[in-house]
Nucleic acid binder design. Structure first.
Length: 257
DNA sequence: ATGGTAGGTTGCCTA
């Protein structure tokens, strides 16, 4: 079973790019972020035509997550537990073929001297709690999404450039590491410990793509039971090179049955 | 030190 995560930066702006990629690659499950539309406005029909069911959790203008699946989507959880006041659409969880999956759009957190960074860290604390609960089920769990965290210096081309950025702050990196210490595995890093210049995001600005000035911030975290089934994991750079591309590119893994 | 690009909304915010 192939599971991918892809921050599309507007589902409507990316409909052509995304459907082309789905047809070319044929993932079983796709975890989407930044759909940037309201739940009811999600273009479900376009995906049903390609054989995918869809579940979305959106809001006006910003954020928004969704799950596409060739298999039935069950036991959906909308929103990250832990703060009933939080209206931002950043978390969607479901069971597909016995695997518990989550589409995560972790807050960016910039600028760091503002409440936005506090919100990011608080959100990561809530994610930690939820991730711990999911581990206790003892089943396969795949937490995929745009974590907005550069885990290590090797996960960016130019660490100095990110020194004052929320994505590379010690607190952000520590909170990401804490998820691993719970017992989760970074699928890409587990299989490719020595990989360099393995990026999932290149800014639209300053010719970042042309200079390969990227960062690895889209991650697939696996419970031990999912890791046991891990066959492969890779970043597909091709979509980022297409016209009208998202600033992110998908990362995908395969689980054996 | 600044501003560069993209998307959605609306006269600007987020990334």
């Amino acid at each position: 079973m192939k599971i991918a995560t892809f921050n599309v930066n507007s589902i409507n702006a990316r409909l052509g790019n995304l459907t082309q990629w789905l047809e070319a690659v044929g993932p079983d499950i796709v975890l989407l972020q930044e759909i940037k539309c309201q739940t009811e406005a999600f273009p479900t029909l376009a995906f049903e035509t390609l054989g995918y069911q869809a579940r979305a959790l959106g809001q006006k203008s910003y954020n928004g997550v969704a799950i596409l699946s060739r298999h039935s989507i069950e036991d959906v959880l909308e929103g990250l537990p832990g703060d009933s006041e939080d209206a931002q659409a950043r978390y969607l969880e479901a069971t597909i073929q016995g695997v518990r999956v989550a589409a995560i759009y972790l807050p960016n957190g910039n600028p760091i001297a503002t409440h936005k960074f506090d919100y990011k860290l608080a959100w990561m604390t809530r994610l930690h709690t939820r991730a711990a609960d999911l581990l206790k089920t003892g089943g396969p769990v795949v937490l995929g999404g745009d974590y907005n965290v550069i885990p290590e210096p090797v996960d960016c081309e130019n660490p100095a450039e990110w020194q004052d950025d929320a994505l590379f702050q010690p607190q952000s990196r520590r909170a990401f590491r804490a998820l691993l210490h719970l017992g989760y595995y970074d699928a890409f890093r587990s299989l490719h410990p020595e990989a360099r210049r393995a990026y999932t995001f290149w800014d639209y600005q300053r010719g970042a793509l042309q200079r390969d000035d990227g960062i690895r911030i889209d991650h697939l975290l696996l419970s031990p039971q999912a890791l046991d089934r891990l066959v492969s994991c890779g970043i597909d750079k091709a979509p980022r090179l297409e016209p009208k591309a998202s600033d992110h590119t998908p990362i995908m893994l395969e689980l054996r049955p």
